[in-house]
Design a protein around this nucleic acid. Structure first.
Lengths: 154, 154
DNA sequence: CGAATCTCGACTGGCCTGATCGGGATTTTC
DNA sequence: GAAAATCCCGATCAGGCCAGTCGAGATTCG
């Protein structure tokens, strides 16, 4: 799964809304500035978020956006899926956008990709905004700590 | 991580070469036909695979390709990384193609993406061709068995 | 009123993917 | 030897998607 910029921006904004939950609306200007998102681009994202019932808007002079649901009820999986469409690494192991493949009968690495999909989906669909908001930020060192992962590079 | 067509094709071919390991070269024509890959496109892929030392070619009338290493020494992670460049779901948690982000200090969902990266990388870098080749093909039912995963859709 | 806000649709430029093509070099088989 | 099949390599290209911009309208607060 590759996160699009749009999904990235959406998540950034959602977490600042989590922080302000219950304290009235936050203007799009403030959201754009705080999260380093192009304002005109953010407009579309907020409309998307609204259409999904995740945020509510108040128009007018002191308007803005606020979370429309408690942060426990929104998951990162939902958000990413809405903006990026698929989480599966390839069409043949996707449900929402399944693509048939001529090799299905004897393809063996498909099982591996299915496993990757399952791990990813399970993790992201259990990651509620409330849970994630309580996590500590990641240090750069952790990103580069490959030995712990056992990989060759990333 | 999203698998490109190129990586997909490369893996298909590699597994038929695994099956024929030690039995002489397989012609590109046969590889293309057996795996449903456009022949002219496959040419480039095979050159890539050769440049990495994963396959060897013999020219001439009865030429073709064969695995240049035992299937235990090549992993899906290596192959995917070579063709697709990144496995990380976003630049800020990538090592080979790291991109700085203005939100690093206080971003919290970055930890989640890091975790996803770690799971993916660990799994794929441990999946040798030999191991994967021994797996049973996936049934369509398994792909759609969402309850087992706990996700909303994929 | 007027300033600041959200809303909406149209548009665009650039990059990446997934190929295709022509032509050349090499080797094996007959 | 000659022919056939193969591998090798660079150039090119169409289409689609992504990220972002723009103009203009509707709504509310002070």
């Amino acid at each position: 799964m590759r996160l699009s910029r749009k999904a990235d921006y959406a998540l950034r904004v959602l977490f600042t809304l989590v922080d302000q939950y219950g304290q009235g609306p936050v203007s799009m200007n403030a959201l754009a500035r705080a999260n380093d998102v192009p304002k005109r681009f953010l407009e579309h994202i907020m409309l998307d978020l609204k259409s999904q019932g995740w945020v509510a808007s108040s128009p007018g002079r002191k308007g803005g956006y606020e979370l429309a649901q408690p942060p426990e009820r929104i998951t990162m999986g939902q958000v990413i899926r809405h903006f990026d469409g698929v989480m599966a690494p390839i069409g043949c192991v996707s449900v929402t956008r399944h693509e048939p493949c001529s090799q299905e009968r004897h393809c063996r690495f498909r099982r591996v990709l299915l496993e990757v999909r399952n791990m990813t989906v399970q993790y992201l669909d259990n990651a509620t905004l409330a849970w994630v908001a309580a996590l500590a930020p990641v240090s750069t060192a952790e990103v580069f700590a490959l030995e712990l992962v056992g990989g060759d590079g990333i």
